[in-house]
């Protein structure tokens, strides 16, 4: 059984059919790419997968659990975490706190426990700090734990977003243009990080990307969207040679 199964997913905004009969199957531990020209509907697919938009029709299942109609927070609890195309960090809080917010549901304690600093507070905060530092170390952010998130350089902000998403202990990680705005060196480093996350966290990753070097470098399979419809889908090398795909990207 695939980890993520999407069937016949469609959504319209007014008269515009943004995504039309979209299908997707991702196996556990796979690195899957979703590509397509601007406005093809990639981010809309992400927003439907995470419950931000309600699809008009279709079926989404994670590990056999039907996700249609669930709220964003419940979908996160069910095991989908994401990053955003335009970085969305908790900018007024420290790097460490950003990850600790990601750990919100992993180490719960009540508000009263927090106010009166009961033993459970100390136990949970300690475990949270350790876990958060562990995650930050993976992304080489542990030395910047006390820095305000908005003061991080751009590449580190992208990494912090991934760390925060991983903190929620997901089964499936969605990355929305992780390499956007990065130079070739940073992109190379990011590719290593993504591979590392997949191998060490036993993670399944679905990513949207424009950088073909990144896509062909790390994705095992891809799906190409154009005007909301699937243009091609399958093994990365084969799909990228498809003349239809080249036409959609480069024009005639």
């Amino acid at each position: 059984m695939p980890l993520l199964e999407v069937r016949n997913l469609s959504i319209s905004f007014g008269g515009l059919k943004a995504v039309d009969t979209f299908e997707l199957e991702i196996e556990k531990n796979q690195l899957y790419g979703l590509i397509g020209p601007n406005g093809a509907g990639k981010t809309t697919v992400f927003n439907m997968l995470t419950g931000v938009y309600k699809p008009d029709e279709g079926y989404i299942a994670l590990d056999g659990q039907d996700l249609i109609g669930m709220k964003t927070i419940d979908i996160n609890k069910a095991g989908i975490a994401r990053t955003f195309q335009n970085i969305r960090l908790f900018s007024e809080q420290s790097v460490l706190d950003n990850v600790k917010i990601g750990l919100h549901n992993e180490y719960p304690y009540s508000t009263l426990t927090g106010i009166f600093r009961l033993p459970r507070y100390h136990k949970m905060e300690k475990a949270m700090n350790e876990k958060a530092m562990e995650l930050l170390k993976v992304f080489e952010l542990d030395k910047k734990a006390d820095v305000l998130a908005s003061n991080l350089p751009y590449g580190d902000q992208r990494k912090l977003e991934i760390a925060r998403a991983l903190a929620t202990n997901p089964k499936l990680l969605l990355l929305d243009e992780p390499a956007a705005g990065m130079n070739p060196n940073e992109t190379q480093e990011l590719m290593d990080t993504i591979r590392f996350v997949r191998d060490n966290f036993d993670m399944t990753i679905l990513l949207i990307e424009h950088d073909m070097r990144l896509v062909s470098g790390i994705c095992e399979e891809i799906t190409v969207l154009n005007f909301g419809q699937i243009l091609a889908s399958g093994e990365t090398k084969t799909v990228l040679k498809n003349p239809e795909v080249i036409k959609a990207y480069l024009g005639e």
Binding site: T72, F84, R88, F90, E92, Q93, I101, N105, R164, T168
Partner: peptide, 19 residues
């Protein structure tokens, strides 16, 4: 408190991490 400030700083991101 962190959850409350997360909502202030970025509502959509807060929702996406299960708050």
């Amino acid at each position: 408190g962190r959850a409350i400030m997360a909502i202030r700083d970025n509502r959509i991101a807060a929702e996406s991490v299960g708050i």
